[in-house]
Simulated scan of single mutants.
Amino acid sequence: MAASSATMFDLSLLSLSAPGWGGVMLGGFVRSLELAIGGYCLGIVLGIGGAFGKLYGGPILRDLLEVYTTLIRAVPELVLILLLYYAGTDAVNQLIGLFNYGPVDINGLVAGIFVIGVVQGAYSTEVLRGAIKAVPPGQIEAARAYGMPPFQVLRRVTLPAMLPYAIPGLSNLWLIATKDTALLAVVGFSELTLVTRQAAGSTKAYMMFFLAAGVLYLLLTLVSNVVIGIIERRARRGMADPV
């Protein structure tokens, strides 16, 4: 029993060089970060387009965006990841086949970023739509009265004014994106959760390796909270504190 406990918490197994798994876990952590950052950025781009489309687009565009956000938010994320990862890859290859090109092996990182980005985009759309609607309409009307063209109103008034309202929701979506990367383990992408499971299965030190993975996720969350706090304070400069 003592030998088994010693194996479960043999810290040498976390060393960066073989036979330790520390280097492998850090590599998986870096890939998780790449997935989270890429998917989050893609989600914000989709969210900006979706928010403005819902607010200012035509009826057909608004209906399509409503279907997109409703479906994505209604279906469990694990099901969406499986559907988008496999069905999306197959759809791309079928589209390429229409132009008489053979199937391509889509990079797992690119596919993962696309999957997380599509999921994030639906939530970002609603967060940004709400933030835009929170901007006092008098500010936009004043900018138009000064003769600013629409793009300049967007760049110099709407986006800066909506940022303080959007940051809390976008911050939460970033933390969700970091956790969603773990779901890609089910499709075989070598992010932190998958390599942790491989390390634990090889050494039988399940407790130690999953605790180590939890610590890495916790550190990421703590650092993210510090950075988010700095961004939020900077965005709210000059604004009255809420009562």
Score class of each variant (00 low, 15 high):
D10V: 02
D10S: 04
L13G: 06
L14K: 11
L14A: 04
P19E: 13
M25K: 03
R31L: 13
R31Q: 11
L35F: 06
C41V: 15
G47T: 14
G49T: 02
A51H: 12
A51T: 10
A51I: 10
Y56H: 09
G58I: 06
I60T: 13
I60P: 08
L61S: 05
R73P: 07
L78W: 14
V79S: 04
L82R: 01
L83Q: 10
L84R: 03
Y85I: 05
T89V: 14
D90K: 11
A91N: 05
A91H: 05
Q94I: 13
Q94A: 15
I96H: 00
G97R: 05
P103T: 10
D105E: 13
N107I: 09
G108Q: 14
G108P: 09
A111Y: 15
G112N: 08
G112H: 03
G117C: 13
V118Y: 10
V119K: 08
Q120R: 12
L128T: 11
A131V: 09
I132S: 09
A134E: 15
P136C: 07
P136I: 11
E141P: 03
A143G: 03
Y146V: 10
M148C: 04
M148W: 04
M148G: 07
M148T: 04
F151G: 06
T158H: 02
P160S: 00
A161W: 06
M162V: 08
I167V: 12
I167H: 05
L170E: 02
W174L: 05
L175P: 00
A177K: 00
T178C: 05
D180T: 04
A182T: 11
L183K: 01
G188D: 15
T193R: 06
L194F: 15
T196Q: 05
R197G: 15
R197M: 15
R197K: 14
G201R: 10
K204E: 02
M208P: 02
Y217G: 13
L219P: 08
L220H: 10
L220V: 11
I230W: 04
E232V: 08
E232T: 07
E232R: 12
R234P: 10
R236E: 10
G238W: 11
M239N: 12
P242Q: 15
